[in-house]
Amino acid sequence: MAETTPGPRYSERSIEERMGLLDKAKMHAKALSLGMLRLARPQRITLRYPMERPVLSEGYRGMIVLNNDKCIGCSLCARVCPAAAMKMFNAAPKKLRPVINYERCIFCGYCVDICPVEALYHVPVHDLVFENRDDMVFDLETFTKEPEEPEHVRKVKVVIDEEKGLRYVPVDSE
């Protein structure tokens, strides 16, 4: 590499002197005026979540959906699952298929990554609501269906911003 790199090193630093009375008064004034500034011009990053939903990033490890046609029933996904959330069962004679228990799933995405035929994939949904715990154990039918996004919510895109940190841009306005 052309540029010189001094590399990592330690640097001794020390705290400046204790504050005198005048410094204290100055810092009080500074802190109060910064507070006043933020009061006048708030910089909110609250996402009003159930009403507004962020568009999750590409490759978000959300809920997992099975493509039943691709699946070859190799059981690797069930074996790799660190939380034992995925189990194989006989969908038909000699036809093993995985099902998932979202009570246990930790969304590590190992099953998606180990699948040799790309039969499993993530969808950018992570917040389904279940009415009871039995519903959290998906059968083959629900597992092969992509979960539906709730209606009547504003979708916003999360943008990292130099001024505000995070900015939420409504999707339809783009």
């Binding site: 590399g7 990592p8 330690y10 640097s11 001794e12 630093r13």
Partner: peptide
């Protein structure tokens, strides 16, 4: 990489 580890 070029960085410092502060020591107080």
């Amino acid at each position: 990489l070029d960085f410092e580890v502060p020591i107080y």
